[in-house]
């Protein structure tokens, strides 16, 4: 590991105020070194939202290289940290995250985690998968998003619509999603969700 990066990592672990943490994370992100990945993921658990947002951005820039560690280091005991991990994985869009996103969207107890996962299920880079895997994976994403369009929490349903809007770009799924949107546009109890469906329909047409 580059000695500069080591120093910058130490600065993050030793930061004793919120402001020092933020600048230490900024400096570490700036070197764009994959050796920083575990430290950046650990920042999600420090209960410092400003630093966490910068760490998310840094990990997204590192992209696919960060995915295996993001998957391994997922924090099962801290839903705040977990939401940042899921948001990062969603933004990177590597389909290795599929199983985790499916589970998080359907079963996590924290709404923030479920919303991030639902959005993420729409925007995975499917072309990275083999043809046979891809069709299966897309079907699973569709089934999970359809199931949570029935959730009692309007914000989860809203996030499902955002995910489905992206999935609707896949020709094989388009028809089913349009039918679901038409139904939600009439039946959903929340005006905000119906409005988001209207926007998704407008984007699709």
């Amino acid at each position: 590991m580059n000695t500069d990066t080591q120093k910058l990592i130490r600065a993050v672990t030793e930061a004793d105020t919120s402001a020092r943490m933020v600048s230490a994370v900024e400096n570490l992100v700036a070197v764009k070194d994959t050796a920083a990945i575990p430290t950046l993921i650990a920042v999600f658990g420090y209960n410092n939202p400003a630093a966490a947002v910068i760490a998310v951005k840094g990990l997204i820039e590192l992209g696919d290289a960060a995915v295996p560690q993001l998957l391994e280091q997922i924090d099962d005991y801290n839903y705040g940290a977990r939401a940042y991990s899921i948001r990062t994985l969603a933004a990177i869009g590597n389909p290795q995250a599929l199983e985790l996103l499916l589970e998080a969207a359907a079963t996590d107890f924290a709404p923030s985690v479920r919303r991030a996962a639902a959005k993420g299920l729409g925007c995975l880079r499917w072309q990275k998968l083999e043809d046979s895997e891809r069709i299966e994976a897309q079907k699973k994403a569709l089934a999970t998003l359809f199931s949570i369009t029935q959730d009692a929490d309007w914000a989860i349903r809203y996030a499902a619509v955002v995910g489905l809007e992206e999935l609707a770009k896949i020709p094989d799924l388009q028809q089913d999603i349009e039918a679901k949107f038409s139904q939600m546009r009439i039946e959903d109890a929340a005006i905000a969700v119906r409005a988001r469906v209207a926007l998704a329909q407008q984007v699709a047409s």
Binding site: Y158, R194, R196, A198
Partner: peptide, 19 residues
Amino acid sequence: AIALDDETIKLMQLMDSLL
């Protein structure tokens, strides 16, 4: 009747960014 305009679309884009 839900009629979308620039204002409502902008609001939804902000909401999307917070998911």
